[in-house]
Design a protein around this nucleic acid. Structure first.
Lengths: 211, 211
DNA sequence: CGGGACATTGAAACGTCTCAAACGATGTGG
DNA sequence: CCACATCGTTTGAGACGTTTCAATGTCCCG
């Protein structure tokens, strides 16, 4: 994640509002007027859609530095909800557009960020099209690891099994079974539902790479 | 797809080169220096990655007006190849960056286009995470339909069954069986492998929407 | 007109989904 | 402070649908 320069932060600071959310609070709802765009300052946020079938598809998890508030036709396309307590910067679209017109440097920075989101989105397509649940879970754990400081053996899992299932496009049962299997095979252990330890790094990486 | 204004086209015209490709020609290869960005003028292009397992995942099909040339760390992340004879505009990244810095209006336009790609990418995620092959194929056909002038009953299918399979993350056999099923149920008929007719529009839409 | 790639069809195997039930953790009210 | 209700997680058994392997059929291009 590429962060903004100090000058740019100042510039945005003038038009941004800092907002805090407790876990499970909704940040914005799909199909409502998209007046603002957001930056994650700290915490984890999920962005999802509820499908007609009743299933929920989590499009992405958002971490510090990520932009969100994707709109189409003036409305948000996803609903976003805090997974952990979170702090975000809220910026009115109108004010942002104005600022971007004046500061082309900042505009390019935004282009960069959206491009980054696009790459991530494509990467996720690779993940969810894998056939085997354990492999998908391994890729997901590695994704989480990338967003945490330092690649130690410990990986924090801020979201629930159900959220992981909605993200990986699996049933919660399949996620649970995949975790049991990784654990049984001595690749990853799960001291609790929200913590994972990479036991065998080599096999872990090999499994995650075996797309 | 939002097109550029005449003035913007002129501006880009100064730094763009028009290039034609015959079917199956490679436009750019993954993991090579990303010197240029491209616009599709006419024709259909596929953007894909070859996975370590040997499988190929088509990330997206590109139609007239689409931008492509996604890079990371100075290298293309996907390989792009003409599906039909195609004409594209090639623009050196360096020259483009220069132009964007000067013309913030154009910069915003690019932001818009990448945002559009991101939305499409998310939409595709919904498609490929469907369980049933017939439903996925129906969604794919509707996607093709959107890119063709006029929603008549006829849908041209420029790509092969194998390409469709790589895009939908199915085996070629599953695509074939899905087509046979749509045909057998009187929803879509396939006069040839490259043409589809929507026989029962209501059921077609209902199936495609039943995510 | 032949060759080769593409497309279709058949049968068995594999893995997740669904339905069901037991188990555990969490947070609230008595 | 404990009992209880609720939600999230885990585990079990059968059903469903795609994958895989194999063979045949078809179309297009040289």
């Amino acid at each position: 994640v590429q962060l903004l320069t100090e000058r740019q932060q100042l510039e945005l600071g003038r038009i941004a509002t800092e907002v805090s959310f407790r876990a499970r609070a909704i940040v914005h709802r799909a199909h409502t007027a998209a007046d603002d765009i957001f930056f994650v300052d700290q915490g984890v946020i999920k962005s999802f859609r509820d499908l007609p079938s009743g299933k929920r598809r989590i499009m992405t998890f958002l971490f510090a530095g990520d932009v969100f508030g994707l709109a189409e036709g003036g409305q948000y396309v996803n609903t976003t909800q805090a997974v952990t307590p979170a702090r975000v910067y809220r910026i009115p679209y109108a004010a942002l557009a104005d600022t971007l017109r004046r500061d082309s440097e900042l505009d390019v920075q935004f282009l960069y960020k959206v491009t980054h989101e696009l790459r991530e989105s494509q990467r996720r397509q690779i993940v969810v099209t894998r056939r085997d649940a354990p492999g998908r879970l391994a890729m997901f754990l590695r994704l989480l690891e990338h967003h945490q400081a330092g690649h130690s053996v410990r990986i924090d899992i801020p979201m629930s099994r159900g959220d992981i299932a909605d993200y990986l496009s699996l049933s919660p049962e399949a996620v649970s079974r995949a975790a049991a299997r990784l654990s049984h095979e001595g690749i990853v252990s799960f001291p609790s539902a929200h913590v994972a330890h990479v036991v065998n790094r080599a096999r872990f990486e090999r499994l995650a790479d075996a797309v």
